Computed example of a mutant assay.
Amino acid sequence: MYTPPAFRDEDRDSIRATLRAARLAHFITATAEGVMATPLPLYIDQKEGEHGVVYGHLAKANPQGRTAAIGDGLAIFMGPDAYITPSWYATKQETGKVVPTWNYVAVHAHGPVEFFDDPARLLQVVTRLTDVHEDERAAPWRVSDAPADFIQAQLRGIIGIRMPITRLEGKRKMSQNRSLADRSQVAAGLAESPRPSEREAAALVPIA
């Protein structure tokens, strides 16, 4: 990921927050048949290894899970993002020398990929992934709520993913390269957006 120094995020807590908040990631592998990518809900077990381990699962019919990866896999986790109009910049009124851009937060996780179909391991992954997204609900649904034989049948239709993270790249592009006047107006403009992601991005623009 191309990351100029001004946008590099090396704060481990910030990176972990982005990983936890991402609802959907993109899982990418290079193979002898070309690059393969699948949008997936993934979770990170932070207790394993130096940087954690990515877990998830693919449909067994998905060829990505049946094709050996060449080199490391890549999981892309996105945070808030927003279109930035030049109309917000104080510089527009001063010189007119401005263009549109896009603000965003992203984390790239790299590591060797393991695919597996052991039912016990698959059940652990499915249970953990479900709990991650159900725990915030008032009445969480649990995998154990469904009949055990039904769950076992469902597990036969998926392939597990395990990717120990060997390298993390964090990027937070939130107008840090603009003047304080420009940043203040960007934050104010985003705060009035009807899009939730853009209002989230407003809070990440440094104006202090």
Score class of each variant (00 low, 15 high):
S175H: 02
Y104T: 00
H57Q: 02
T127H: 01
A138Y: 09
T95E: 06
I70E: 12
Y83H: 10
L74H: 05
T18P: 05
A17N: 09
Y55H: 13
V98D: 05
E136Q: 13
T85V: 09
P4T: 09
V113N: 04
N177H: 12
A139R: 09
P112E: 13
R8K: 15
R8M: 11
A82S: 09
L123C: 07
A188E: 14
D9M: 13
S184V: 13
P194S: 07
G65T: 04
V105Y: 10
F116E: 04
R156E: 14
S179E: 10
E198H: 11
V186A: 10
A21G: 13
I151L: 14
P206A: 12
M174P: 03
P41H: 01
P140H: 12
I15W: 06
E114H: 07
G170L: 08
W102D: 02
L122W: 03
R142K: 15
L180I: 09
T127E: 03
A138R: 13
Y83F: 15
E136S: 11
L180S: 06
N62C: 01
A68G: 06
V99C: 02
P206S: 11
G65N: 08
T166G: 14
P80H: 12
P41G: 01
V98G: 04
A32M: 04
G160W: 00
R183I: 03
R137Y: 15
M78D: 02
K47W: 06
L122N: 10
K60W: 07
Y2L: 14
P41K: 02
P5K: 14
P63M: 11
I158E: 01
P119C: 12
A32D: 15
R137V: 10
L42Q: 04
N177T: 09
T3Y: 05
S175G: 02
Y83D: 09
H110W: 14
R12H: 12
K92Q: 15
D11P: 13
A188M: 03
P100Y: 00
Y2A: 10
E94V: 13
I158Y: 07
I161S: 07
Q46V: 01
D9G: 07
R172P: 06
Q152N: 15
A25H: 08
A90D: 04
I151R: 12
F27D: 12
A61D: 12
H26F: 08
P206R: 07
G65V: 10
K173N: 08
K47I: 06
